[in-house]
Design a protein around this nucleic acid. Sequence first.
DNA 1: AATTTTTGCTATAGCCTATAACAAAGTAGG
DNA 2: CCTACTTTGTTATAGGCTATAGCAAAAATT
Lengths: 137, 137
Amino acid sequence: MKEQNLQSYPGYALRRAANAMIGDLAKRLEAHGIRVVDATALLLIADNPGTTSSAIGRSLDIQRANMVPLLKRLEDADLIQRKPIDGKSLGLFLTAHGEERLAEIRATIDAFEAELIARVPAKHRDHLLPALNALWR
Amino acid sequence: MKEQNLQSYPGYALRRAANAMIGDLAKRLEAHGIRVVDATALLLIADNPGTTSSAIGRSLDIQRANMVPLLKRLEDADLIQRKPIDGKSLGLFLTAHGEERLAEIRATIDAFEAELIARVPAKHRDHLLPALNALWR
DNA sequence: AATTTTTGCTATAGCCTATAACAAAGTAGG
DNA sequence: CCTACTTTGTTATAGGCTATAGCAAAAATT
């Protein structure tokens, strides 16, 4: 099977690398009973207590409509709670249980990220993050 | 909104970059009426005339079951045809119409890939492909 | 005060992936 | 040769994630 043409495309490599990465991370986070996107939102709420659904959505490029089931899962798992901050918006906060779970989740993610960057040959390593950031930020 | 923690994760940047990239490519390929995955399979069939559904699936990590609707779309669009190579397997070939469309599709993809790599600062540029390949190959 | 925007939500559809099961054809070992 | 195993192509179905349209209430703007 001739695949050289495909493999010379950075876009192809980017997609394959991202798919492999996200699959690996998803498998590790399964042990915590949480999805990758949900964990990402949880991290963001932890760093921004009182933030809102729409603010999280804007930051992660998730439509308002899709935030609804996401936050419901986090709430059903007793990881976050919502408190009205005015008549319309709801502030998001981690529960005590959420803080404990997040510590474990963060440890898993940190280990994952360390292994990920370790797989990149040393001479290319420091270039990965800036190169990727140039593609979307 | 504090996002530094998230943005220091290569895994996060990888996912965001891949999503942005695939969205852009999908939009460009819409003009040709073809999906990204379908175009990828078409490229592979073009470079490996007579290859089979299962071989394409193995190369692109697509389950056999998911190759069925994919190839049906390519066949319905008169881009490929299937010819029995033994009593069980079907060889895949581009049609004349498929060859013509592929030339246009390939031009779109090549332009896209060139612009993608051009967005990466010069000093990081040559590191991107090897770094990404280390993450999945 | 009237208009526009924002927020949170429901409902729904589409894309892509994952699993289980099946029949028919091919392959390998005794 | 015959049996057991594997491969191929397929159907059916479910799940994860995304996208669009529409809605009501609250907030912001003018």
